[in-house]
Nucleic acid binder design. Structure first.
Length: 475
RNA sequence: GUCCCCAUCGUCUAGCCCGGCCUAGGACAUCGCCCUUUCACGGCGGUAACGGGGGUUCAAAUCCCCCUGGGGACACCA
């Protein structure tokens, strides 16, 4: 598709003003997939020119998130604040050409005019009053504005949206350099994308309106245009732009809630892109199959349920050893002392894989195998550890004591015998035992649980459970 | 207020570009059944959509126009 001479170079350019947003991740992912598909380069650029809001901490969060998801970059992170002279040089070029000019309007003045326009329901727009200012350079701090062509049209050929037309009369003169010499977004991107030889600008479609202005800057600078691809927004359930009030929107939260990176990647890839009816994709398949041909142009509602389903899918299929590693911190989170009885993990994890949708759930289910004192779920206790079950449990303990071996199959035999003799169903016995042994109503198969726990701990817990049963004075 | 984008089941989407194979397919969720003398997993089946109106055409989810609805942008934020 793309010849070797025009090697694909794309970039993800977040502004470090907060956490790494799920929408940002999707943009990063599409960039990354496109780069990897074309064996091109993926570059990370930090757009930190908003000095009041950018933080080091945020940069760190972004890098961590990218690493967690395996979105590795080939160059960077490049920081815009490290290259101020680059923007200044470019601004000077335009100033010299007469394609830009100094503007001495103060932010306060501009703000007041804008507010007034909005109040009068008029289009807020810079009126160009400094545009034709002649004479000596201003003696007070001045911003540099771009002299946007006021006639004709600018056409954006977009890989996702198609051909989009804008009247230049619609555009006003944007500020390129603030009065302190720091570039604004629209100027910074153009300079950097040009200098960094970016071939495809893939970003959120909230930037589509900025594109004609940027195209004019490319023209003025004499730089070739990259290809553009504007991805539709990710929406919340109420169809407004996905934000914090819709729930978790930061990658960190998904990590902390026990999601697997491959689940998030898979989910986000399918949000706005498809490959026929396929739902589950490995990273390699994604790289192989990704193309803008199949990127959808309409916005998509974020569906946490489906993400959860994918996560459970990947947990079901996951490699035990890897899951064991990933689970570790979550076990600690459940109060299991670090590095404890790690030898049980190879048995515990497979037993829990089909009943855990997240690593948090898995850790919750696993905790009872590692702790001395289990946490008893109160409703479960009330429901299943009842006086009428006491004799059955006592009988069971008796039999287990004399069981030849403490294996799952032997357990089954013991249970069978009790059931036959007492004429009860397994469900009658299994749930109370489950609660006694794990403190919960959901656990691996009950025989399996006993085998993993072993004879001593199993019997101990059963006895303890009997002690918890209220005495049967009413009967 | 101006400009831009978008419009298939509740949700993600296939189909649309190159009209007929669409009595519109898949997935998540939901409902029901089955499997399991345990909790899950799993299997099977059901409910559910082309926003409205005009064209064009023998034929429109598919092409054109309008309306409506939703989203976004209009900063010395990005």
């Amino acid at each position: 598709m793309t010849s070797a001479s025009e090697k694909v170079r794309v970039r993800f350019a977040p502004s470090p003003t907060g956490y790494l947003h799920i929408g940002g991740v999707r943009t990063a992912l599409f960039n990354w997939l496109f780069a990897r598909h074309h064996k091109g380069q993926f570059i990370l650029r930090i757009e930190d020119t908003d000095r009041s809001r950018s933080t080091e901490e945020s940069i760190q969060t972004i890098l961590d998130g990218m690493r967690w998801l395996g979105l590795d970059w080939d160059e960077g992170p490049v920081r815009q604040m490290d290259r101020l002279n680059l923007y200044k040089e470019h601004a000077d070029r335009l100033l010299k050409k007469g394609a830009a000019y100094f503007c001495t309007c103060t932010p306060e003045e501009l703000d007041a005019r804008r507010k007034e326009a909005q109040a009068k329901k008029r289009t807020p727009r810079y009126d160009g009053r400094c545009r034709d200012h002649k004479g000596p350079l201003p003696d007070r701090p001045a911003a540099v504005r771009f002299k946007t062509p006021q006639t004709g049209q600018t056409i954006v050929e977009d890989l996702v949206k198609g051909r989009v037309q804008f009247d230049n009369a619609q555009l006003d003169d944007l500020i390129m350099l603030r009065s302190d010499g720091v570039p604004t977004y629209n100027f910074g991107v153009v300079v950097d994308d040009s200098v960094m030889a970016i071939t495809h600008v893939i970003r959120g479609d909230d930037h589509l309106n900025n594109t004609p202005r940027q195209i004019q800057i490319y023209h003025a600078l004499g730089y070739p245009l990259p290809k553009f691809a504007h991805l539709s927004m990710i929406l919340g359930p109420d169809k407004s732009r996905l934000s914090k009030r819709h729930g978790a929107t930061s990658v960190t939260e998904y990590h902390d809630q026990g999601y697997l990176p491959e689940a998030l990647i898979n989910y986000l890839a399918r949000l706005g892109w498809s490959h026929g009816d396929q739902e589950v994709f490995s990273r390699e398949e994604l790289i192989e199959k990704f193309s803008f041909e199949n990127v959808v142009s309409s916005p998509a509602v974020f569906n946490p349920e489906k993400l959860l389903w994918l996560n459970s899918h990947y947990i079901h299929e996951g490699d035990t050893g890897r899951l064991a590693d990933l689970l570790q911190p979550f076990l600690v989170g459940e109060g299991v002392a670090e590095g404890r009885d790690a030898s049980l993990l190879p048995k515990v994890i497979p037993a829990l894989q089909t009943r855990s949708r997240t690593l948090v759930e898995m850790a919750q289910g696993a905790a009872c195998f590692f702790k001395d004192a289990i946490e008893m779920d109160a409703p479960a206790q009330a429901k299943f550890l009842t006086p009428e079950i006491r004799p059955l449990l006592m009988e069971l303990i008796e039999r287990l004591n004399t069981a030849s071996a403490f294996t799952a199959s032997e357990m089954e035999t013991v249970f069978k015998n009790v059931m036959d003799e007492k004429g009860i169903k397994l469900s009658k016995l299994a749930q109370p035992v489950r609660v006694a042994l794990t403190g919960r109503t959901v656990s691996p198969g009950i025989y399996e649980v006993m085998e993993i726990l072993g004879k001593d701990r199993s019997l101990q817990r059963l006895k303890k459970a009997i002690d918890l049963i209220p005495s049967d004075i009413t009967k």
